[in-house]
Amino acid sequence: MNSTLELKNVSVAIEGCTILDSISFNLTEGAIGCLLGPSGCGKTTLLRTIAGFEQPFEGEVWISGIRASDKRHLVAIEQRQVGMVFQDFALFPHMTVKENIAFGLAGLSGRHRKQRIRELVDLLKMDDFLNKYPHRLSGGQQQRVALARAIASRPRVLLLDEPFASMDIGLREHLAREVREILKQDGITAVLVSHNQLEAFAMADVVGVINDGRLLQWDTAFNLYHRPGNAYIADFIGEGVFIPGTVIGEKSVETELGIISGSAPLAALPGSPVNVLIRPDDILHDDDSTMTAVVHKKAFRGAEFLYTLALDSGTQLLSLVPSHHNHPVNEAIGIRLEIDHLVVFPPEA
């Protein structure tokens, strides 16, 4: 399939300071990508570069087979046909919801415009507040209007800048899923910026982790969690600990938990020391197991406890245990390893 959005080695500087360093990725039509990273990592700048607010000093941005930006050319923002949902929604306060949505539809005839608005109103369930002004709307309603306005003219790419940041934490995941459904229904290619991984996982097909202006990995959420490309991603995505080990074979490592074997060949040579990533779901609680660890801390999460366990050597592990297994701190409990994805990194210098 053709890619709708493609970035080739894009580097962007603002006021002489390099913010993005050689970013490349592509999105096929209808796919939803998410740029994930801590605040200040450059993800918003990347979004603004795609929109045309910033110009790369190196590399190219291609939108639907058209070179939209490079160091010499910059297709004007208004001609790119990108939709954007801003973090604060940027609804026009002097226009009603309907006028906001119709804003980008100036090119359509009256009948078509009405029809498109009707579609969006149905899609986003906006009947109740179509004639209100933005300041009368709740945050969730404002967000729906911002989304409707951005997708009204069927942009080639939809960009969303932290669209759920101003929502209640409880609402975010739910809204992310809802927005995903709407985008999928309309077949819209979208790029989302977020610093919240649950939001990213809920919404995106592909997630790119950005740190310090570099795109570290562009992959599915599953792979980011289970096959992280480097120690930073392993640490940034999900929870887990590193325990020291030694490579003993092509696919095996020896650690104080015993020999752990993976399915894929390791990148390290036998005999070399490595850090092994142990996720909370890799450690199962098993009363019959001979291997034990002492409960050091526990955090109640509803369906599960997240136990911090200490081995005899003092090494700590995390374990997710169904919450009817309620063990007091300092009790030794039996544990068992179930590692499907062996992830190792060279020890930090």
Partner: peptide, 23 residues
């Protein structure tokens, strides 16, 4: 007020002059 609104209008297909008068 208008920075984000101005940018939003640009992404919705308005040139700089139109942005001034409409937003």
């Amino acid at each position: 007020q208008s920075v984000c609104s101005l940018e939003a209008a640009r992404t919705l297909g308005c040139g700089p002059w139109k942005v001034f008068f409409r937003i």
